[in-house]
């Protein structure tokens, strides 16, 4: 049996390569939107927060984990909404001649 960690590591390494090629093709004019959108997508860490907040208190969660989860949920939501919307706002300003 192969450990699931090995599969995850394979995905991780391949994604680094994908990232390498995709990022080099980003036009320098859009480097600021690139940073704000990477901010937004790295907030997919929200899945961990949802897991903690949603866990059943009596069965397998503690008050502490719920509180930390809720805090993480708020922070990640700020980033998700703020990141995507500010990116959209910036991209809306880039216009061609004419």
């Amino acid at each position: 049996m192969i450990d699931p960690f090995v599969f995850q590591l394979s995905i991780f390494v391949l994604a680094i390569f994908v990232g390498y090629f995709v990022i080099w093709s980003v036009t320098p004019a859009l480097h600021t939107p690139l940073m704000s959108v990477t901010n937004a997508i790295s907030s997919v860490i929200v899945v961990g927060a949802l897991l903690a907040v949603g866990a059943h208190l009596a069965a397998d969660a503690s008050i502490a984990s719920k509180i930390f989860g809720f805090f993480a949920l708020v922070l990640a939501s700020v980033n998700i909404f703020g990141g995507f919307l500010v990116t959209q706002r910036m991209l809306g300003m880039y216009k061609k001649k004419g």
């Binding site: 704000s36 397998d60 503690s62």
Partner: peptide, 30 residues
């Protein structure tokens, strides 16, 4: 924009700390 992006980075960092802490205190849920 630069300070907004820096501020967003700090939130991702803090969210990561919180999620790790949540996992520490609810390992079965994770």
């Amino acid at each position: 924009m630069p300070e907004l992006v820096a501020g967003f980075h700090s939130l991702v960092g803090l969210a990561a700390v919180c999620v790790a802490a949540a996992a520490l205190y609810a390992p079965t849920a994770f």
